[in-house]
């Protein structure tokens, strides 16, 4: 906390890496576009094929922007949870927040059609999906918070998060059993996760939610730092526990819930990125960690999305699978290497 300046070079490198990852991300996709053509399109130059211009500006750039928001936002929410729950293994996926969002989405996509078959179409749009998923994640987060207050054992908390995941999976499969094939398909595609296919309004809405969540996180920096000592110490430093917890939870719920609503449940980013970030930014100061974690998450998401696109092929892999393939080994590697995870 003494010399935040010493991380300036690291920040510069990370920002450069982000730009590289972004260029890589938008230069690859199912349609092969030559690199020079892409650059000239970006800088408003002439381009041989008009459809390339359209693909870059209307598909790839919004997708890259979404990936930045999703990766950065999820990672910041993971960082907030690790500090709030004093647990290095906390993250939106592990604590069942993503499951809650899934449940909200599943109830909306498949449940409403059970209750009133015809009304569901009018109810179903992006906004209601986002609201349902956010409500689901908020509810789970509140329950986890209540449990965390009663049970001081952090391992128990993780197990409860996993149980929430199981309960959600069970309810979803019951809903799926009674659901129409069409609605089931919509849910399955949502649950694969995707940063593409978002309309301009959706991207803007996502940017608004993520921006607000990050803003709340930035306003909580001082409290988050105090929480590193433990709640009693934080209180003795003049931090109001109830108010701080509420603000941090709202920030986490907005980030994790909002992002999951639009991009589907994306695993491991929130858990793994804060630990990866600390490999370079070896500090606990949230003033440095919040921007660093956001940038790192954005890079990771852009890279995962680039892989998921399977460059020059028409098929797209579910991004949720890619992040798990990347994230899970990282967590194992960290645990094995350090024997214990510190946060």
């Amino acid at each position: 906390m003494q010399r935040p300046k010493s991380y300036q070079i690291s920040f510069l490198l990370v920002v450069l890496a982000l730009l590289l990852a972004w260029v890589l991300n938008i230069s690859s996709g199912s349609v092969a576009i030559p690199f020079e053509a892409m650059l000239s399109s970006l800088f408003g130059g002439k381009i041989e094929v008009e459809s390339w211009n359209y693909i870059i500006w209307n598909y790839r750039i919004p997708k890259g922007f979404t990936a930045v928001l999703v990766g950065g936002g999820l990672s910041v929410s993971g960082l907030l949870m690790q500090t709030l729950f004093r647990n290095p293994l906390a993250g939106p996926f592990v604590l069942g927040i993503s499951s809650g969002a899934s449940l909200g989405a599943a109830l909306l996509l498949m449940g409403t059609s059970l209750i009133s078959g015809f009304a569901s179409f009018t109810l179903l749009n992006d906004i209601t999906l986002a609201i349902a998923a956010s409500i689901g994640s908020f509810l789970v987060l509140l329950v986890v918070m209540v449990v965390a207050n009663r049970i001081k054992d952090t391992m128990a908390l993780l197990i409860i998060g996993l149980m929430f995941g199981s309960i959600t999976a069970a309810i979803v499969s019951v809903l799926a059993y009674f659901s129409t094939a069409e609605n089931l398909q919509r849910f399955i595609f949502w649950s694969f996760g995707s940063v593409g296919n978002l309309s301009q309004t959706q991207v803007l809405l996502l940017a608004g939610i993520t921006g607000f969540g990050v803003l709340l996180s930035i306003l909580s920096i001082k409290r988050l730092n105090a929480f590193l000592l433990g709640e009693n110490y934080a209180q003795s430093l003049g931090v109001s526990l109830k108010k701080s917890r509420l603000i941090i939870i709202i920030a986490t719920g907005l980030l994790a819930g909002g992002i999951t609503a639009f991009a589907g449940p994306i695993a491991f980013v929130g858990l793994a990125v804060p630990h990866l970030t600390r490999q370079i930014f070896d500090t606990m100061e949230h003033r440095i960690l919040i921007p660093a974690v956001f940038l790192y998450g954005a890079i990771l998401m852009l890279l995962c999305d680039t892989i998921a696109q399977l460059p020059n092929s028409a098929s797209i892999l579910p991004i949720n699978a890619i992040t798990s393939l990347v994230g899970a080994p990282v967590v194992i590697w960290l645990l094995v290497r350090k024997r214990k995870m510190l946060f």
Partner: peptide, 26 residues
């Protein structure tokens, strides 16, 4: 009780003692 985060450096931990006097971002 031990500090929640054992990843804090000595100086960082002591600096947290100044929180009642620092501005909104510490």
């Amino acid at each position: 009780e031990q500090p929640s985060s054992k990843n804090l450096t000595v100086e960082e931990l002591i600096a947290l003692g100044r929180q009642p006097y620092t501005n909104w971002i510490g």
